[in-house]
Simulated scan of single mutants.
Amino acid sequence: MNKIGLLVLIFHCAITSWSQIIHPKASPYSVIEQEIGLSKIIVEYSRPAARGRKIFGFQADGQPALVPYGRIWRVGANESTKITFDTDVKVNGQSLPKGQYALYVFPYSEYWDLVFHMNITHWGDGRNNYDPKEDVLRVRIRPITTLVFQENLLISFDEIGHDSVKMVIQWARTKADVLITFDTYEIMRTKIERTLKENPTAQTYYEVARYYQEEGIHLAEAISYLEKALEKGGETYYFYRVKSLVEGDLGYYDAAIQSANKSLKLAAMEDKDEFVRLNQKSIKTWEDKLENN
């Protein structure tokens, strides 16, 4: 290409870029990230608005609504909605490997079929290219009618625990949720075994014991790890706080009270008023248990 041709090309590209106008999107793009235990879910979707339209099923005159029953829906607008899991999960009790999927729904009046689809390249709902053979998992969920009106499509997470979460899809007066569970214990067990074989610190032992206490498991081991944490890291209000809770869970109320008193005094020295109150409350509970035994 000669110099004149190159200048013409550059000028044309400049004019083209100047003439493009970026306008507000009718269905803005959104990303939601949610941690659950040691796992994470990421959902990427566009959020259409109701704008006075009938959303699901059929209109009063019998014509299809915006999202007709029985037709594939992308659970959003524009490109297909994507959902990513960084660990293996179970959806309503059915196994789903970690990875990224297109999320689809086939809505009906009494139920929805929620689909996790391996082909994430479809634009829109992929109606003309959708192949059910590319479904990785399909589960049935039950929509309900709500009193609260949701103007923009909303995908959210609720009832978040260490091992489970509910993913909620809500638009207009329709809401549906699905239970997603994680084998957080197995992930944690593997992590604990690896970390304890390396060069565990006082904090390592404390974190393992705290996890066991929160889950109500391996309490005898938790005590031994807390003793190692105290030996390696010295006396801290939070080491003794968790030690008292484990002892209380085991029914060793005298020992729990002693540990809680130590935690209380150390917390007071550091102006940790919340831990002072927590220890006072626990001590009262365990003293009452001793009196009633």
Rank of each mutant, 00 (worst) to 15 (best):
M118Q: 14
S46Q: 13
E186K: 15
L66T: 10
I169S: 01
L66I: 05
S39L: 02
T201Y: 10
Y69A: 06
T81W: 04
Y206M: 07
A268D: 09
F157Y: 15
L153F: 14
Y104S: 03
T181C: 03
R53W: 06
W171I: 01
K90F: 13
L179Y: 01
L7P: 06
S39G: 05
G76Y: 04
S164G: 03
L226G: 07
L66C: 03
K54W: 05
G251K: 03
W171N: 02
G57F: 06
V43L: 04
A222D: 07
R194P: 01
K40L: 09
V242H: 04
D249G: 01
D113L: 14
L230W: 01
Q63N: 14
Y212R: 09
T16Y: 12
M1L: 11
S17I: 13
Y252A: 10
T195R: 15
D135C: 02
N279S: 07
L66A: 10
E79N: 15
A267T: 06
K90W: 11
K3W: 05
E227N: 13
L196K: 11
K25I: 08
H23P: 00
G57A: 07
K243M: 15
G5R: 10
E287S: 02
W123Q: 12
H218K: 15
F275V: 01
V139L: 04
M188V: 09
L38A: 09
L147H: 08
I217Q: 09
E186C: 05
V208K: 07
T181I: 01
R173N: 14
E274N: 09
K197I: 02
L66M: 11
L196E: 10
